[in-house]
């Protein structure tokens, strides 16, 4: 009994240390002879939909409608996929990124998908009704703030990496995403589904493609010095 208690304890402590190691920060450093990565994200599969069914505040929130969970462009190109590299310890400087804004407008989160780095996010209410913006990492609440009237604004902090889903308990059908990326090697696709990530220190990495319906898809990549690697990904499902 005693022994197993100790085992569990050691295990717990080990977990704690492992977590500390994981949280290691990205270091900005000049990149010499970096490589580029580019490609197209496409989708070939069933597109699910969700239903926006306003049950209250109808004059603000509009009519019932179906919304596809994959936004497809020509040739199956996926819009609003977030492509990024995982496990990059150091590399190019972060670009100038404005503080992300989640705007509640006509009971829609605007933008629907955006990328952010760890740090502050502004949450805005452009509707004359109560919204509450409730963010989650997975199923766990990341924050939950009331925006009781028009032009109410709250600033919160996105503390961890990963996709943050937002919903509104006052209007249960609302849905939005902020993907918090660990380093500046990322891109959100437009309607052509293309991405390009530049100036990556040569080495082996994991390429992550996040998409609202499909979740995260990981692909191993090797970046060669001074060369462009092309990786196009067809998401399945």
């Amino acid at each position: 009994m005693r022994r197993s208690l100790n085992v569990v304890l050691t295990f717990t402590l080990a977990l704690v240390f492992a977590a500390t190691a994981n949280a290691a920060k990205y270091k900005e450093e000049a990149v010499s002879n970096g490589g580029d990565l580019k490609g197209t994200i496409t989708y070939n599969g069933v597109i699910k939909t969700r239903t926006a069914l306003p049950t209250k505040d109808k004059e603000v929130c509009g009519k019932p409608r179906k919304i596809p969970l994959v936004m497809l462009g020509d040739g199956g190109a996926v819009q609003d996929a977030v492509v990024y590299l995982k496990d990059v310890e150091s590399g190019k400087a972060w670009p100038d990124m404005q503080r992300p804004v989640i705007n509640n407008i006509a009971c829609i989160f605007e933008p629907h998908v955006q990328v952010a780095r760890r740090g502050k996010v502004d949450i805005l209410n452009s509707d004359p009704v109560l919204h509450n913006t409730h963010g989650y990492y997975g199923k766990a609440t990341a924050f939950n703030v009331a925006l009781p009237f028009k032009d109410a604004k709250v600033t919160k902090i996105l503390k961890r990496f990963g996709p943050v889903r937002t919903d509104c308990d006052a209007h249960g059908w609302m849905l939005g995403w902020v993907v918090v990326v660990p380093n500046p090697y990322f891109m959100q696709t437009g309607s052509d589904g293309n991405y390009s990530i530049t100036d990556v220190p040569p080495g082996d990495y994991t390429l992550v493609v996040w998409q609202e319906q499909i979740g995260e898809t990981e692909t191993p990549v090797t970046i060669k010095a001074g060369a462009t690697t092309e990786i196009s990904i067809e998401l399945g499902g």
Binding site: N144, V145, D169
Partner: peptide
Amino acid sequence: TGLDGTPMPSYADF
């Protein structure tokens, strides 16, 4: 501060 883990939101700013 709100009850995190529930729909009960924070009204800290208002």
